[in-house]
């Protein structure tokens, strides 16, 4: 385990150096993140100028949900996103060769290859947004926030990681699907709305096939006070199941790797 921390330390240090080397990309990334967050915030303002609540979610609640969604998105894109996104290209170009020959877990090495420090400021903005939402809307009990929230936010992060990894592992099966991240973004974007808005069917899918509820809704519910004990258990089970699935699917898929001459 200590070895993995030391490897992680090197990878974080190297990512920081790379972020500094490519300053232009760093600022564009930062501007892009803040711009999207601002635009969505405006959309919420427009919605709530006409109504008090949407399927039981008040303006404050919805800002919290948006904040959580954005927080997890920024956490993902700041940590494993860039690394995992490379899988289809690594497979197509045969560059998985070096990853597979190293005496370290290849799934870890892929995911931890690139951290993006440009995500730090948007992350602070996300926390500010969540705090603002909580200050104008309802807030959960201290116990839910101290005990339930850490569990569901970690479960949410691990589920985001699993879904993202699962999709990109398809790169071993289908050539040139470098843009599969766009499919993930499409799915993920649904998570910034209260899922009751979409009706029973989408809600069912969001609890099972694509666990958007576990990814984004439950952490927000923990903060605004809607979270139940059963939902915490559900979050734990779903995230564990998806992690296991991701691991097994990766190990199975890697056997198909045929490299490139």
């Amino acid at each position: 385990m200590r070895r993995y921390f030391r490897i992680l330390k090197v990878l974080v240090r190297v990512s920081f150096i790379r972020d500094i080397v490519f300053r232009g990309a760093f600022y564009i990334d930062l501007f892009h993140a803040v711009l999207w967050l601002g635009l969505f915030f405006l959309v919420i303002e427009v919605f709530f100028s006409h109504t008090e609540s949407i399927v039981g979610w008040t303006k404050g609640n919805l800002i919290v949900l948006l904040g959580i969604w954005s927080l997890l998105d920024d956490l993902a894109s700041g940590t494993f996103w860039e690394g995992v996104k490379r899988i289809p290209t690594l497979v197509a170009d045969g560059n998985m060769d070096f990853i597979l020959t190293r005496p370290v877990d290849s799934q870890f090495l892929i995911a931890a290859e690139r951290f993006r420090f440009s995500r730090v400021i948007p992350l602070i903005a996300d926390i500010a947004l969540i705090s603002y939402g909580l200050s104008i809307g309802s807030i959960g009990s201290l116990w839910t926030i101290l005990l339930g929230f850490p569990i569901v936010i970690i479960a949410g992060y691990l589920t985001v990681l699993s879904v993202f990894y699962l999709l990109h592992t398809l790169g071993f099966w289908f050539l040139r699907i470098d843009n599969i991240w766009a499919l993930y973004e499409g799915i993920e974007n649904i998570g910034k709305y209260p899922l009751d808005v979409f009706g029973r069917h989408i809600k069912l899918v969001s609890l099972t096939v694509v666990p958007l509820t576990v990814m984004f809704t439950l952490p927000a519910e923990a903060l605004v006070g809607f979270l139940s004990g059963a939902e915490v258990i559900n979050a734990l089970l779903v995230s564990a199941l998806f992690l296991w699935l991701t691991r097994k699917f990766y190990q199975y898929s890697v056997r198909r790797y045929s490299s490139v001459a």
């Binding site: 330390k9 790379r18 490519f22 070096f98 005496p103």
Partner: peptide, 28 residues
């Protein structure tokens, strides 16, 4: 064991080789 492929690159192209060596030091 180690493998070297003349047509493939295991070093980070945008960083000095020493940074890749340091990563290998920790991995191995």
């Amino acid at each position: 064991f180690a493998i070297v492929m003349g047509q493939k690159n295991q070093l980070w192209w945008d960083l000095p080789a020493m940074d890749s060596f340091i990563l290998n030091k920790e991995i191995y």
